[in-house]
Design a protein around this nucleic acid. Structure first.
Length: 182
DNA sequence: AAACGAGGTTCCT
DNA sequence: AGGAACCTCGTTT
């Protein structure tokens, strides 16, 4: 995807979205024609607010609700048996250079492992940018697929989470359970 | 345990 | 350009 496509708030982009049940509450799946571009979670009754939180990221894109076409994506995301290293889920990361670098670093964290924000900062060659990393992780639009929940504070503390620490904890717990299943 | 400043980047005015 | 906000961290009260 060329940078021009997402500049200007995603003008000209068509984003398809749908709501689907997930182990962590209702999941909002957002996709472009090229693949998954957003994933968020909503508490019951807050679906619209959560969607607004997403659309704010690409305010000029066109949004189309299409439950049918996002359903297969949702299925693949939350069923670890469908995870194939040789056939990775298509993810379109819409963000600045710095953000994309941070997200790619997150993707390399294996399930069940955790790193600190400063670890990530070191990996992208700005050891002192841990706070910037935090900000970038927070803006990760593809929550869960890009494992933003595996980023912890330096001493292993659950520091913060855009959708609530509780949800972060739920994800880590769920992952621990999945390890046993596999 | 709480307060504080440095820190990199982005967003808004 | 300037200032505030951020899922931080280490040091100081």
């Amino acid at each position: 995807m060329s940078p021009g496509e997402w500049k200007n708030g995603g003008a000209g982009l068509t984003l398809t979205y749908g709501f689907h049940p997930s182990p962590f509450g209702t999941a909002i799946v957002i996709a472009t024609a090229r693949g998954l571009s957003g994933l968020a979670f909503a508490d019951p009754g807050e679906e619209q607010a959560a969607l607004a939180d997403m659309t704010r990221r690409w305010p000029n894109a066109t949004y189309v609700e299409d439950h049918e076409s996002t359903a297969p994506l949702a299925r693949r995301i939350f069923d670890t048996r469908l995870w194939r290293p040789d056939q990775p889920l298509r993810v379109v990361m819409i963000g600045t250079d710095f953000e994309v670098r941070v997200w790619e670093t997150l993707l390399k964290i294996p399930m069940g492992r955790a790193v600190s924000y400063s670890d990530i900062a070191c990996k992208i060659n700005s050891p002192k940018a841990s706070r910037a990393v935090g900000a970038a992780v927070g803006k990760n639009p593809v929550s869960f697929v890009v494992p933003c929940h595996r980023a912890l504070g330096k001493s292993g503390t659950l520091t913060g989470y855009h959708w609530g620490i509780t949800r972060k904890q739920a994800m880590l717990g769920w992952e621990a359970g999945q390890l046993g299943v596999q």
